[in-house]
């Protein structure tokens, strides 16, 4: 029904790739900038925000308030230096929260 625009927030070298897909990118050099950028984007009506893992991890508590509504969706994406494991860790913690134990094989 509705269309949300998407944006990517992170260090310059990590988000430049997103501009290739026609997505608005915001460079942030530290977690505080990233937080400001995310809040601003949400206010401006961006519904999908790709945030690099290192900032997503640092801002975990600040981003909790976006957790219980369908939009905005904030997706941690691996940064330039490769996946830091935060995304996988998030899957496992969701699993533990929901089921009470992690039933995926530890690999």
């Amino acid at each position: 029904m509705s269309e949300y625009r998407s944006a990517a927030v992170g260090s310059h070298s990590s988000v430049v790739l997103f501009s290739a897909a026609g997505i608005k990118t915001v460079s942030a050099e530290n977690a505080k900038d990233a937080e400001k950028a995310v809040n601003k984007l949400v206010k401006e009506g961006y519904g999908i925000i790709f945030l690099t893992e290192n900032y997503a991890k640092e801002l975990e508590n600040e981003l909790k308030r976006y957790r219980n509504t369908a939009y905005p969706v904030i997706l941690p994406v691996p940064e330039r230096s490769g996946p830091g494991g935060y995304g996988m860790q998030k899957i496992n913690s969701n699993m533990e929260k929901a089921i009470g134990t992690n039933i995926f094989d530890k690999d």
């Binding site: 029904m1 269309e3 625009r5 998407s6 290739a20 897909a21 026609g22 997505i23 519904g47 999908i48």
Partner: peptide, 9 residues
């Protein structure tokens, strides 16, 4: 970049 059609949400 022309491929900027927003996705269906």
């Amino acid at each position: 970049s022309a491929n900027s059609a927003p996705p269906e949400c």
